[in-house]
Lab assay of single mutants.
Amino acid sequence: GIPATNLSRVAGLEKQLAIELKVKQGAENMIQTYSNGSTKDRKLLLTAQQMLQDSKTKIDIIRMQLRRALQ
């Protein structure tokens, strides 16, 4: 079985993952909103794209940590 310490770690990672998935969803929504907007929305679009990139990276890292914890 999986050690108890790993189980609480997994629960924490799953919570983090859920949050990051919401951030990713929000960033994707912002990108959709701003991509057909005016030029003043360009900065917001770039910010949203950066957020999305960061979020995807975090999600990958969390998933990797989850896999390790579940081994």
Rank of each mutant, 00 (worst) to 15 (best):
residue 37 G to P: 10
residue 24 K to T: 03
residue 12 G to P: 03
residue 67 R to K: 12
residue 38 S to N: 08
residue 69 A to D: 03
residue 8 S to M: 06
residue 21 L to T: 03
residue 39 T to A: 11
residue 38 S to M: 08
residue 41 D to A: 03
residue 49 Q to V: 12
residue 13 L to V: 00
residue 56 K to Y: 04
residue 52 L to Q: 01
residue 66 L to T: 00
residue 18 A to C: 14
residue 34 Y to F: 09
residue 31 I to P: 00
residue 24 K to H: 05
residue 44 L to E: 05
residue 27 A to G: 01
residue 64 M to K: 11
residue 42 R to V: 11
residue 49 Q to G: 02
residue 35 S to V: 08
residue 25 Q to C: 12
residue 24 K to F: 12
residue 47 T to S: 13
residue 39 T to W: 06
residue 10 V to E: 01
residue 5 T to C: 15
residue 30 M to V: 04
residue 44 L to M: 10
residue 36 N to V: 06
residue 17 L to M: 04
residue 13 L to W: 04
residue 63 R to I: 13
residue 3 P to A: 05
residue 48 A to D: 00
residue 48 A to P: 00
residue 55 S to W: 01
residue 52 L to N: 01
residue 66 L to C: 02
residue 57 T to D: 14
residue 20 E to C: 14
residue 63 R to D: 02
residue 44 L to G: 07
residue 1 G to E: 14
residue 66 L to Y: 02
residue 45 L to G: 01
residue 18 A to Y: 07
residue 46 L to S: 04
residue 38 S to C: 11
residue 26 G to T: 10
residue 63 R to L: 10
residue 30 M to Y: 03
residue 9 R to S: 13
residue 69 A to T: 05
residue 67 R to M: 08
residue 37 G to V: 05
residue 53 Q to C: 08
residue 48 A to K: 01
residue 26 G to V: 13
residue 50 Q to A: 07
residue 1 G to K: 12
residue 40 K to A: 12
residue 11 A to V: 11
residue 16 Q to P: 00
residue 2 I to Q: 10
residue 71 Q to A: 12
residue 62 I to E: 00
residue 69 A to N: 04
residue 18 A to S: 06
residue 41 D to W: 02
residue 33 T to P: 01
residue 8 S to N: 13
residue 19 I to V: 12
residue 41 D to R: 03
residue 10 V to T: 03
residue 70 L to D: 04
residue 70 L to V: 07
residue 11 A to W: 04
residue 54 D to S: 07
residue 49 Q to D: 02
residue 2 I to K: 12
residue 16 Q to K: 07
residue 17 L to V: 01
residue 59 I to D: 00
residue 24 K to S: 08
residue 11 A to N: 07
residue 54 D to A: 14
residue 1 G to V: 09
residue 57 T to W: 08
residue 2 I to F: 11
residue 17 L to P: 00
residue 51 M to N: 04
residue 63 R to G: 03
residue 30 M to A: 09
residue 37 G to Y: 02
residue 22 K to Y: 04
residue 68 R to Q: 14
residue 15 K to R: 11
residue 39 T to P: 09
residue 4 A to V: 14
residue 55 S to I: 10
residue 24 K to C: 13
residue 33 T to C: 14
residue 68 R to P: 01
residue 12 G to L: 15
residue 30 M to G: 02
residue 61 I to E: 10
residue 41 D to N: 07
residue 9 R to P: 06
residue 35 S to R: 10
residue 64 M to T: 13
residue 21 L to I: 05
residue 5 T to D: 13
residue 61 I to A: 09
residue 67 R to E: 10
residue 22 K to M: 08
residue 34 Y to L: 08
residue 52 L to S: 01
residue 39 T to Q: 12
residue 45 L to C: 05
residue 62 I to V: 02
residue 70 L to F: 04
residue 37 G to K: 06
residue 13 L to R: 00
residue 35 S to M: 10
residue 36 N to A: 06
residue 8 S to H: 12
residue 21 L to W: 05
residue 30 M to K: 05
residue 28 E to R: 07
residue 21 L to A: 02
residue 5 T to L: 11
residue 49 Q to S: 03
residue 33 T to W: 08
residue 43 K to T: 09
residue 6 N to Q: 10
residue 23 V to S: 03
residue 18 A to L: 09
residue 21 L to H: 02
residue 35 S to T: 06
residue 36 N to Q: 09
residue 7 L to R: 10
residue 29 N to E: 13
residue 42 R to Y: 15
residue 55 S to V: 15
residue 62 I to F: 02
residue 19 I to F: 10
residue 34 Y to D: 01
residue 7 L to N: 12
residue 61 I to T: 04
residue 36 N to T: 13
residue 3 P to T: 05
residue 26 G to R: 12
residue 38 S to K: 09
residue 35 S to Y: 13
residue 26 G to W: 06
residue 39 T to G: 07
residue 52 L to M: 04
residue 17 L to C: 08
residue 5 T to K: 08
residue 59 I to Q: 00
residue 12 G to F: 15
residue 57 T to P: 01
